[in-house]
Amino acid sequence: MSTPDSNNATHADIDADVVFHAHGITKIYPMGEVEVQALRGVDLDLHTGELIVLLGPSGSGKSTLLNILGGLDTPTAGCVLYRGRDLTRATERELTEYRRYHVGFVFQFYNLIPSLTARENVAVVTEIARKPMRPEEALELVGLGKRLDHFPAQLSGGEQQRVAIARAIAKNPEVLLCDEPTGALDSSTGIVVLEAIERINRELGTATAVITHNAGIALMADRVIHLGDGLITHVNINETRKAPHELTW
């Protein structure tokens, strides 16, 4: 097993540019009488401005890892430090606050609010954020400046996903967590969506983690973390990131 960073990192010597420092994360789900070990001691750091891809087949533990990073789930053992704050000891209220101010989520199925327009779907988040950008600005960033007042039903799948990205980044989050963002899209639409994610990462410097089982996407990342059976199997570092339009799958 190779580890992406030093196993010996302590709270004190975490670099200032480390957004997440996860150490020895284990997650066990009790499933009736058997226990399913989703994660078996994962160590991972994510740095400011970095774009990583978590790659693995289904059941490899990548979603569990993302959920734990996003404050949606807590590990059975191990610790996750976000900017030095221990997420594993956070209360429900603190986790809500963490998601509210620091994390942007993009889901496979967009999870837009159908009763709100594109602009309002973004506003739903900016209204509760601390230093958000204007919803129009966020939508401009994902190339939807002209479709502000369209309802989800009036948008294509790719456009809906881009609204979801705009919604995720409009609060100016420190991290952007994307769970199979292209999973429900065809490849050409998927590329448009990935371009939006890449642009956010590049222009805003938001640390970004993208989950996928699609190896084709891996080339756009700074680092590709391969997961299998609850463990990090190996890590690839791309010297140069490929632009999404160069990707194929």
Partner: peptide, 16 residues
Amino acid sequence: SRELASLRVLGFTRGE
């Protein structure tokens, strides 16, 4: 419930 859970993930509180 799905819509509301999405909003919770986005950082909405239970009260909201």
